[in-house]
Amino acid sequence: MARKLHEEGKLPFIEVYVDVPIEVAEQRDPKGLYKKARAGEIPQFTGISAPYEAPEKPEIHIHSDKLTVEQAVEQITKYLVDNKYVQL
C-alpha cells in the first residue's frame, strides 16, 4: 500500500529489507523482548506468536547476520548512487 501511494504521487519508494534469522535477533535482543514473548508475556509478537511476512520484492535486501554495519551502509549507498537518487 505504501509503495502504491508513493508511485501514484510520483515519489520514489525504496523498500529496504533488513533480514535476520530469528535466532540471531533473539541473541541481539537487549531488552529481552523475545524471551518475554516466548514465555507468553507479550502476545502477538511478530515472528514468535504472530506471523511475519517478508517483503516480496524489496529494492535492497540486507542480510544483517552476514554483513557488518559498514557493509550494509555500503550496499544501500551503492543502490542509491547506481539509481541516481544521490551523488557522491
Rank of each mutant, 00 (worst) to 15 (best):
S49C: 05
T68H: 01
I14C: 05
P30W: 00
L67N: 12
N83I: 08
K57P: 06
E70H: 06
E59F: 01
E7P: 07
A39C: 05
V69D: 02
Q44W: 07
Q71S: 02
Q75V: 10
A2P: 09
G40A: 02
D82Y: 03
D82E: 05
I76H: 03
E8G: 04
L11G: 11
I62Q: 00
Y85E: 03
V16T: 04
E26M: 09
V81H: 08
V24L: 06
V16A: 02
H61G: 05
K84M: 09
D65R: 10
Y52P: 05
Y79T: 00
M1L: 12
I62C: 00
V86D: 04
E53T: 15
G40I: 03
K57F: 12
T46L: 10
L11M: 11
A39F: 12
Y34E: 03
A39P: 02
V24G: 01
F13Q: 07
V69T: 07
K31S: 00
A25C: 15
K66Y: 04
L88Y: 09
Q87T: 15
H6E: 09
I14E: 00
A25L: 07
H6T: 13
K36R: 04
I62R: 02
I62H: 01
V86P: 04
D82K: 12
L33E: 14
H6Q: 10
A39G: 04
D19R: 14
V86F: 06
I42W: 03
F13T: 07
Q87L: 13
P12Q: 09
I42Y: 03
S64E: 03
D19I: 07
Q71H: 03
L88W: 11
P30R: 02
K4S: 13
A37L: 02
F45A: 01
E70I: 08
H63A: 11
L11P: 09
Y34A: 01
E41F: 05
E74N: 07
D19T: 06
V18Q: 01
E26K: 04
K66A: 11
E23F: 05
A54E: 09
G32L: 01
K66P: 04
V69W: 02
Y85W: 09
R28Q: 00
K35Q: 15
S64F: 00
I76N: 06
Q44N: 15
L88A: 15
D65F: 09
E70A: 11
F13H: 11
G32C: 00
E23W: 05
K10D: 13
K84H: 12
S64M: 03
P43G: 04
P12R: 14
N83M: 10
K78V: 09
D19Y: 06
E53C: 11
A72W: 01
L88D: 12
Y52A: 05
Q27I: 11
P55R: 05
T77A: 13
Y52F: 12
Q75H: 09
I62W: 00
P51C: 07
D65Q: 13
A25R: 11
A2H: 12
Q44D: 14
Q44C: 13
H63N: 11
E70Q: 09
E7G: 06
E7W: 15
I42F: 00
V24C: 03
